[in-house]
Design a protein around this nucleic acid. Structure first.
Length: 455
RNA sequence: GGCGGUGUAGCCAAGAGGUUAAGGCAGGGGUCUGCAAAACCCCGAUACGGCGGUUCGAAUCCGCCCGCCGCCUCCA
């Protein structure tokens, strides 16, 4: 299995350090609704985790919530609520969204505000080792003391100096970054030996990764926009603190969701919320859309693309609805070659577009074999299993209530009687009436079947 | 400006030196059907932004040019 490591810029063979694969994924800053770009990142890492599981690895997955920072405070003040309350509300919404997208939960979701002791411990260690300095109640990291600074993002300090736009007098050097920020009056704060304040953004991830996963972790993931400065800073502070190299063995970064030829982003308001998308499309369609392009490439959101993938999802689902003929002499569709090709695709840096292509080829083969009355049970199970690695449920978007189902069945069988008597007009009236209510009737050789299409 | 990425059929998107350039959606033709729907079969890029070069052979490697995007400030 090969994965593309941002640090080396190459595909490398993946070998975890120990039996359990350790994986840290940067989570959200909880100050606003999650958008479809977040869905992209977390669906991608969900698939990576599921695939590692499929390959027999046990995965320990940690993902943080940033629940204290400038934007949270600013937003909370605007709304007149406590920052902690705001963060809690949006992290709850995040869970609801991810559950609806069938994103499996991480093992632990640490929150910055609950990891202050570890943060302080690291900052103290960095101060003691001379990698950090205090200034007016804040603490900064001395990037010039870390020779490897810039390696992950392929840039060097000398190129960046003139570009550093925000020069704060409190810093020794413009690119030094805050480990601890002194709090202003009225802001939430935690006590520390250098005064009241709160953690800088980057330090929480180091603290959580080191605390829950150890000094060297296998996989660290996040969106490509985090490469610099966030992940660069994480490396600097973590390796300086532990004196262990590398902090992360495989850096994986997902491409960003675009809309109107621009990055989708909270700060620009250029976004589609996950909730809105889920109101219009099934989670399978959303996942199919996101996974139909390679995870490291950007993807442009469009309604048309989602609609196309909804139809694709429907096609996969419907291959599962054929009833197997219990004829022992029937030929069996062997799904093994498909599974083999699926694995081959996924082993190559999680090539989900190719893996999905295999799923569609298997689907066609199932449909064809079903017409030939071959045994397709194994093939259907394989489709379900492989789809599951991509987090596809392949379930209908919604089911009618049991009551409604009874009525639908009654109408369908009445219509069949009418068809028997060639009462086409009445039969068609029932069919179109049901269609208006979201029920599609299909007359097959095995009788009439129906689908409920409402989301 | 620096660094990174990207440009493949109407749309989305794989492929990264060599048999017929995956797959999905849309479209056309057909089979089935009372008609539909679904499904299946057949069809569609002599062509991979442009121009050169390397090679027996390039969408795939190299050079230049053009377009688009990201990061360099908070961001998944």
């Amino acid at each position: 299995m090969k994965v593309f490591n941002t640090l080396t810029g190459q595909k490398e063979d993946f070998h975890p350090r120990n039996r359990v694969v350790t994986m840290y994924v940067c989570g959200i800053t909880a100050y606003d609704e999650s958008h479809i770009g977040h869905a992209m990142t977390y669906i991608i890492f969900d698939v990576i985790k599921r695939y590692l599981g499929f390959k027999g690895h046990e995965v320990r997955h940690i993902q943080n919530f940033t629940d204290i920072d400038d934007k949270i405070i600013e937003r909370a003040n605007q709304l007149g609520v406590a920052p902690a309350e705001l963060a809690r509300e949006y992290s709850d919404q995040y869970f609801a969204n991810m559950d609806a997208l069938n994103v499996a939960r991480a093992d632990i979701y640490p929150r910055a505000t609950e990891e202050i002791p570890k943060v302080i411990e690291i900052i103290q260690g960095l101060l003691a080792k001379g990698y950090a300095y205090e200034s007016e109640g804040s603490v900064y990291f001395r990037v010039r003391n870390f020779p490897d600074y810039g390696r992950l993002s392929r840039r060097n300090l000398s190129e960046m100096i003139p570009k550093a736009s925000t020069y704060e007098e409190k810093k020794e050097y413009p690119l030094d970054f805050a480990l601890w920020k002194a709090s202003k009056p009225g802001e939430p704060f935690w006590e520390s030996s250098w005064g009241k304040g709160r953690p800088g953004w980057h330090i929480e991830c180091s603290a959580m990764a080191l605390k829950y996963l150890g000094d060297t972790i296998d996989i660290h993931g996040g969106g490509q926009d985090l490469v610099f400065p966030h992940h660069e800073n994480e490396i600097a502070q973590s390796e300086s603190f532990t004196r262990e190299t590398p902090f992360v063995r495989y850096w994986l970064h997902s491409g960003l969701m675009q809309q109107d030829k621009q990055k989708m982003s909270k700060s620009t308001g250029n976004l589609v919320s996950i909730k809105d998308a889920l109101g219009r499309f099934s989670s399978d369609a959303i996942r199919l859309f996101i996974l139909s392009s390679h995870y490291r490439n950007p993807l442009t959101y469009s309604e048309e693309a989602l609609e196309a993938n909804e139809r694709g999802a429907e096609r996969l689902r419907s291959a599962l609805t054929h009833r197997a003929k219990a004829d022992e002499k029937a030929a069996m569709l062997n799904p093994e070659p498909f599974e083999h090709r699926f694995i081959e695709a996924m082993d190559d840096d999680f090539n989900t577009p190719q893996a999905i292509a295999v799923l569609f080829e298997l689907t066609r083969e199932i449909n064809r074999s079903a017409e030939d009355c071959a045994n397709i049970t194994e093939a259907q199970l394989t489709l379900l299993k492989l789809g599951g690695i991509l987090g596809l449920t392949l379930k209908e978007k919604a089911q009618p209530t049991p009551d409604a189902e009874t009525f639908i069945n009654l109408l369908a069988s009445t219509r069949d009687d009418l068809r028997q008597n060639q009462q086409w007009q009445l039969a068609d009236k029932i069919r179109s009436g049901l269609a208006d209510l979201g029920v599609t009737l299909e007359d097959t050789h095995q009788g009439t079947r129906w689908k409920y299409n409402k989301i």
